[in-house]
Amino acid sequence: MTSLLRIENLSKRFGGLQAVADVSLAVTTGEICSVIGPNGAGKTTLFNMISGVLRPSGGRIVFDGTDMAAVSPSRFAAKGIGRTFQNLALFKHGTVVENILTGRHTHLRSNVLDAVIFFGRTRREEIEARQRVEEIIEFLEIEHIRDAIVGTLSYGQQKRVELARALACEPKLLLLDEMVSGMNQEETEDIARFVLDIREELGITVLMIEHEMRIVMDISDRVHVLNFGRKIAEGTPAEVRRDPAVAEAYLGGHRAEAAKVGA
């Protein structure tokens, strides 16, 4: 199988701070991969570069055969990279449907005149967008809140709406940043199931940052481990679980705690 995403010696510096240093990794089409590491390891900075939020200080990002250095950051989503954020980035005063519809903007081709007369291409795009949104709502089992104002929803429901909006972009690669952070056990299990379904039913490759090690070990094909901005380990969940460098990074080498990485 081919690599959908290839990162080569990627680095990011903020003044005197080296947030990411010489990181290389590949994500194969159809995989669920995780990036893990202690707080401050550089995981979100890495995601921000992959999604175009930040420009790298060095190295290359090659996505679906395209060197992304030549792509405008505003075009990353159109190229097929979808993203959720650790901190919710929703329109709190809009409805669930309205928020998900914003994810369709990369597929709109109508011009201002088309929009004014609302005919032809604009009308077709509107019908297609709303049909796709309804399919996503059904897929994520949020029919009962489709017309609710997002700001009135629980945290777990809002996270699901943000996932829906990312899916509305129809990404080839979905970046999930701490999707289950702050969720209870039932909500966490639901998200794990949805991630598997996103890969199996929608054919979308997934790269996720996650602190919940049970999810990482249960559903990941491969795991990449960062510490102080550098990659220190890579492998299957079982291989990473046994790696002493991973236990050292997370737990300072305390053997009694090491088992918790894969618990």
Rank of each mutant, 00 (worst) to 15 (best):
E201I: 09
Q157F: 02
D243C: 13
E31K: 15
Q157R: 02
L54V: 10
I81K: 07
D22C: 01
A245V: 10
F139A: 00
E143P: 02
G30F: 05
L226M: 09
E186A: 06
M68I: 11
L88R: 08
S181N: 14
G16D: 06
V223G: 06
R109P: 00
E31S: 14
H93Q: 11
A259V: 12
E138M: 12
S74G: 07
N99W: 06
V150L: 08
N184M: 12
T106M: 08
F76Y: 15
H211T: 08
R104C: 07
Q18T: 04
Q185C: 00
R214A: 00
I209H: 09
D67V: 11
P244L: 09
A259S: 09
L173N: 08
D114F: 14
R123M: 08
L113Y: 14
S24M: 07
E239L: 12
I215P: 04
L153T: 05
R230C: 13
R132A: 00
D221A: 09
L202V: 09
G15K: 00
H105N: 05
H224E: 07
G252P: 02
A164V: 10
E162Y: 00
L207A: 04
N99R: 07
T236N: 13
G252M: 11
T236K: 14
E170D: 04
L251Y: 15
F14R: 05
E248H: 08
D147M: 12
I117E: 03
S154Y: 02
M217C: 05
I149N: 04
F91D: 00
E126A: 08
H144G: 06
N227T: 05
K92C: 05
A263Y: 13
K92R: 11
I204N: 03
A247Q: 14
V161A: 01
R123V: 02
E234D: 11
L46C: 06
R160K: 10
H144C: 01
R160F: 00
I232L: 10
G40A: 13
A78M: 10
R130E: 14
C33K: 05
D243A: 15
G52K: 06
Q185K: 05
G156A: 07
R242W: 00
D67S: 09
R130S: 09
T44G: 04
T188P: 02
N39E: 11
L202D: 08
Q86L: 12
I7P: 02
N184G: 15
L4A: 04
V97F: 12
M179C: 01
G94W: 07
F47D: 00
L4M: 13
N111C: 05
H211W: 02
R165H: 01
F85N: 07
D177Y: 01
A247S: 15
L90T: 08
Q86Y: 04
C169H: 00
I145S: 04
F118Q: 03
A26P: 01
T106V: 15
R124L: 03
L5K: 05
V180N: 02
P237I: 03
K260E: 14
M179I: 06
T28P: 06
L226Y: 05
G37T: 06
I36V: 15
C169L: 04
I7A: 13
L4T: 12
S154T: 15
H144I: 03
D221L: 08
R75N: 12
G252N: 13
I204A: 00
N39R: 12
G30E: 11
E239M: 13
E248G: 08
M49T: 02
T102M: 11
I117N: 07
R214Q: 03
L90G: 08
I36Y: 02
L90N: 11
